[in-house]
Simulated scan of single mutants.
Amino acid sequence: MVIGIVIAVIVVGVAVWAVTAYNGLVALRNRVDNGWAQIDVQLKQRADLIPNIVETVKGYASHESRTLQAVTDARARAAAASTTAERAAAETQVGQALMNLLATAEAYPQLQANQNFLDLQSQLKALEDKIAYARQFYNDVVLKYNTKIQTVPSNIIAGMFHFTERGFFKVEEPDRAVPQVRF
């Protein structure tokens, strides 16, 4: 009789642990998905802002077509990306192209005095700050999620229910370089 109670308590304990571990993994996976969705919202706003910036700069710096084309091409690659990793890499290129565009724009005093350009630049800065925060949040949640599915004993449940690791939103080494502007 006592052995039966002990076995029942152990079985119930294991079942409670398994349900708790599974629910914890699901909650973290959903937070990762939510984190990416928040980044996606900010990236969409930036993508919507880019044509306005490009058109404004075009009016003042029409001979900077290579820089303007790089921004447009990077935006198109980001829109065409199909995986999180591809999208992250493409969005990093968009950020680099925008930095080059803004650095190029500094050579045009009339453009720097244009209120429309200043407003667009301010909106872009605010969006970049939001994107940076959203990336940090996403990477923090990915770290927690990946740690949970890799550590014992929750890795048992993760393996049984096919929870897979998620990638971080990284900045690639070449993209850390300061943009070079030559006239």
Rank of each mutant, 00 (worst) to 15 (best):
D175P: 06
Q110Y: 01
D140I: 05
E106T: 02
L120G: 04
N139G: 06
V142W: 02
Q121K: 00
L111Y: 00
A132S: 11
A134K: 04
L111S: 00
D140Q: 13
A107P: 01
T151M: 10
Q110E: 14
F117V: 04
I157F: 08
K125V: 11
F168H: 14
A113F: 03
F137T: 10
T151F: 09
E128D: 06
L127R: 06
I157L: 09
T104L: 08
S154E: 13
P109C: 04
D129A: 09
D175C: 03
Q110F: 01
Y138D: 07
N116H: 05
F161N: 15
Q115R: 12
K130N: 07
F163G: 11
T104P: 08
A105H: 03
L143T: 12
T164N: 11
A113K: 09
E172W: 05
Y145F: 06
T151K: 14
L127G: 14
H162M: 14
L118T: 13
Q110V: 01
Q112A: 07
Q150N: 15
T147A: 07
N114V: 00
P109E: 15
A126L: 06
A132E: 13
K148V: 06
L124Y: 00
Q115I: 05
F117W: 04
A132G: 05
V152K: 12
V141W: 10
D175Y: 13
S154W: 05
D129I: 00
Y138C: 06
Q115A: 10
Q112Y: 03
I131L: 03
F168A: 05
D140F: 03
Y133W: 11
T104F: 09
Q123I: 01
L127Q: 14
A126V: 02
I156R: 10
S154P: 06
E106M: 01
N114W: 00
Q121M: 01
A126C: 04
Q136N: 15
Q121G: 00
Q110L: 04
Y108C: 01
Q112P: 03
T164L: 06
V152F: 15
A177L: 11
I156N: 08
P174N: 10
Y108R: 02
Q112T: 02
K130V: 02
D119T: 11
K125P: 04
E165G: 04
E106P: 05
E128H: 06
I149S: 12
Y133T: 14
D175S: 12
L120F: 03
